[in-house]
Amino acid sequence: MSQAKIKVENLSLWYGAAQGLKDVSVEIGEHAVTAIIGPSGCGKSSFLRTLNRMNDHVPGTRLTGRVLLDGEDIYARGQDPARLRKRVGMVFQRPNPFPMTIYQNIAYGPRVHGQRGEARLREIVEQSLRRAALWDEVRDKLQKSAFELSGGQQQRLCIARALAVEPEVLLMDEPASALDPVATSKIEELIVNLKESYTLIVVTHNMQQAGRISDRTAFFLSGELIEFGPTRDIFTRPRDRRTEDYVTGRFG
């Protein structure tokens, strides 16, 4: 395995009295796709959202343990969540473009982060849209509202938007679950292409998808990390009985 980009140590998470994650420890490799699978409510989205501190905004959340990004604890006192999230981008389950033009959707982030020159912003917009495999479809309607795009296009726009602030890690929370099969395969192809430049962590409901796109897979059940290893091993010779039951479709 390549070098660890993110190291999670003894992470536990509570929503009020309910425990969402139980003593999770894991190392996530750089420039790889890590899939997170498990049945609904197993804690996979909660886990993903601890990696960019998105759970900070959910009232009643409590957390113990450490999450290290390049060796630095992101929950340490004095860490700025906004700066963290610039490094650890996120793509959500449902496309969530801003109520602006396509161009502004992409340019907004870089501009807020201090990028001023309009020529440079245009470059960033084009480059991000190309990386998200959307450029050819929208190059002539950059000034149209983002809501005029199809669902699959909106999701790629959201990926482009995330890429535009040059993150190191990209978290994706079931990025294709609201899309049709054609749009899904485009997103999957994109994910595989992106790992050259980014570290990707993808939560998915769909085990075939995990098999197609990921290098390593983590299986969660009831807030516990049951098994973590190379994707092929998880699907062909799981070590834990519960993993085997899940990947063979006995429950979930």
Binding site: M54, K86, R87, N96, F98, P99, M100, A162, V165
Partner: peptide, 27 residues
Amino acid sequence: TPRETKEGALGLGLTRWEMIRAVSLPW
């Protein structure tokens, strides 16, 4: 204002006030 859209802004590394300007107020 949809929570997802607001989270999208926070996820880009925007502060709360920047999120309000980008999403909540236009919306």
